[in-house]
Design a protein around this nucleic acid. Sequence first.
DNA 1: TATGACTGTCGAACCGGTTCGAAACGTGTC
DNA 2: GACACGTTTCGAACCGGTTCGACAGTCATA
Lengths: 340, 340
Amino acid sequence: MATIGDVARVAGVSRSTASYALSGKRTISVDVRRRVEDAVRELGYTPNAGARALATSQTRVIGLLAQFLEDEFAPAMLQYMLGVSNTARELGYDILLSTEADGRNALRRMTDSRMVDGIVLLNVAEHDDRLPILRDAPQPGALVGLPADCTGVDVFDLDFEDAGRTMVEHLHRLGHRELVLVSQPEHVVERGGAYVWRLQNAAVEAARARGITLHAAFGAAHQPDVGRDLHALLDAHPRATGLLINNEAAAAALPTVLHDRKLSAPADLSVVGRYSDEFARTFSLPYSSIESAPDRLGRMAVRELVRRIEGQAGPDEPHLVRFVSPELIDRGSTAAPRGD
Amino acid sequence: MATIGDVARVAGVSRSTASYALSGKRTISVDVRRRVEDAVRELGYTPNAGARALATSQTRVIGLLAQFLEDEFAPAMLQYMLGVSNTARELGYDILLSTEADGRNALRRMTDSRMVDGIVLLNVAEHDDRLPILRDAPQPGALVGLPADCTGVDVFDLDFEDAGRTMVEHLHRLGHRELVLVSQPEHVVERGGAYVWRLQNAAVEAARARGITLHAAFGAAHQPDVGRDLHALLDAHPRATGLLINNEAAAAALPTVLHDRKLSAPADLSVVGRYSDEFARTFSLPYSSIESAPDRLGRMAVRELVRRIEGQAGPDEPHLVRFVSPELIDRGSTAAPRGD
DNA sequence: TATGACTGTCGAACCGGTTCGAAACGTGTC
DNA sequence: GACACGTTTCGAACCGGTTCGACAGTCATA
């Protein structure tokens, strides 16, 4: 494999000159620059990443921590990963991926050994145990998900409170007076998935303010449990005319459940979910939904992270906490309730 | 950040001694070893990955190339990725992930700059344009998916021919005489997704050998197109009693389609798919299926790759081409056809 | 014709590890 | 007491880049 020494020899210059010719950090005569570039082509030279990282303390790699936990719906996570990965590449960075359940280990390994210039954390819990480690690390970090304490990191998340309100308002406006909300499994909440509460509390509050009934419940993350949960909920609240879904597995299971009950949306039941458009297409979901914008969130996180890595953000520039406003995508699954 | 020089100073030894004490590659007195280990703990020392890579020419990183192409079903790919990632971690390797559509670029970048010790290629096409690059690279490569030319790499794939035969045999044995097979989009085939043909040809041949009818067709990769495709197929072949599905999007869309047609499996139609058990759970699919074993294939690929990286495979040990035998998971969606 | 400024190039040092050869030391043998 | 030997440690070189300071050459200016 060719080194910069080989390039220099072929071009008839010193190693430092070759380096400067390639980086452009000092003025080099056009003649020499041309000879160096020819040598690079001739030898097929590519700089050794390890050596460059050692010399510059920059790797041009971003660490991506995605935990695939029990009771979590894997395909939803994929969309965030792709948003992060694709944006990173556009900005000239590669992705070091960890799917370890124990994210602390992975985080320490990546940061301590200087394998990465920065870190993106997905699926952040309210008291995420990876955060103290990330704050102590020399690399900057960006989160997708809102923790209790945002100091020292940039934070991006959907505005789940607004999402909860929007769902309720939308159905209230159509005339619905009794709703059911299916959230993520209780387990996810216990693990600190605060976004579940944020949406739910706002929905409950919005319903109370409008004097309508909202039954909130958890749903499992897999079949067949989540199907049973949905049946049980619909059995328990036969007068409910609207269904809110903040649970990807439940959304994916709903077509079959409605089929079994011989119900259609919106004729028999109005349905609003919270998932991305890409998710809806993939899972063949015909229900209107609050766009969860995983690609956009991933993109924002990486953009800001790279700004910090490259020092375009001032060293004392305060960290961001930014919420994406929910947008309701109408797929025609809501209507006025049947007047019976 | 502490370096091995700091460790050596605190322990009162030379850098080389500290290095040997940690690697164990030369005998070191227990006293010195203890002092070095204490210093490591005291300083929180972790070796710098770039420096180590430069010195040893080993990165302990595996490159993972996953292309998310148009007309491909993303969640199916995720399972292969997780199989690879988790196995790599178990063996002490990290994953450098590329999701670029142009895999050649990513591959060249990773291999030329020595960022990785080895490469895993997912979703390999018959004449995959990444293969020539991989063969020229100094790092070993493992594929999931069968190309026309397997020289120089280890190859792992499901036995799609056996899968096609098994599906047909299973329904023939139950008494079905007219079947429909829905394959991946034609576009996937044109791009070189030979596994589609392998399954389809074997199915056609198996049907011919048994004197039964098989209508083979392509299906789209997304809603609502794939739903339309399924409807059209069932309309076109009203006497078919069995449905074979080699298309994840079609499988995911089938519950809704059957609902719309007021059909149930297996009462009105026997259904056999080709997807993993994890996929079935995630997508709430109640149909029997040929297990596509993505985790197992990913695991096998990484295992063999690491064996080569670490030189446990002899330098001239021939490369593997290994097929996983299909296993039919019975979820009760097949039965004898209705005798009407 | 010396002076200073500017351009283009080079040599050496450095980043933080690993590894080879040799040195220092204690031990046992003749 | 000279010698060989095994154990433990050290110094130096090396991996392949980047970067700083110095220096030679050119040109305009005083």
